[in-house]
Amino acid sequence: MYADDVCVIVPVYNEEPAVGGTLAGLLDTFAHVVCVDDGSGDGSGEIARAAGATVLRHAVNLGQGAALQTGFDYALRRTRADHVVTFDADGQHDVEDAVRMLEVARETGVDVVLASRFTGQTEAMPFSRRMVLQAGVRFTRATAHLEITDTHNGLRVLSRRALTRIRLDLPRMAYASELLESIVPNGLTYTEVPTTVSYTDYSRAKGQRNSNAFNILFDLALRRLRSAR
């Protein structure tokens, strides 16, 4: 059982059917689970509180990146956690994987531990999704200068040092690339751990459309142009 020194951050937006189970699974292992309710219109927030999580509520929907950043700010300001785990609410991650990643972070002292569904086992991933994600990996390797095999995986372990250096600002889903791109310039160390992602009917229905990859590219390109002053 992990106590105060680890804070699990679960961004939630209208995940009523899944959030209870996901949080219950996490709370068996982690004492401190923070659920960021990103303006859900259903009962996700109440379910999360009932399950035993600390709930931060966005009054309006701001997107997953903003929800994670709120969780990071909470961890920095209100807790003494030396590591945070980011974990998707839809139940696609395995708590055991999070534990293994934490152990890697503790043993090696790296700032960012990323999960890879391509070196690990992935259950029932659609072919088209594989293609889009692989293209994303090639793009990220080129732009973020990271030797990784997966991007946009919701399971991550970040050290407190990493939290102080990473600031997520981009809208929609581009924050995941933004996070990766802030690793090397900020002098953070990273490693990748093979994990399992379960593509259930629920997570498929809730998840991203493949075409959203273009929106992510657009948001990233805009940021790059704007920051090149």
Partner: peptide, 13 residues
């Protein structure tokens, strides 16, 4: 919105 969320933290039941 972030400031508000951090201000009104709802602890577990």
């Amino acid at each position: 919105v972030r400031e508000l969320a951090l201000r009104d933290t709802a602890g577990p039941v």
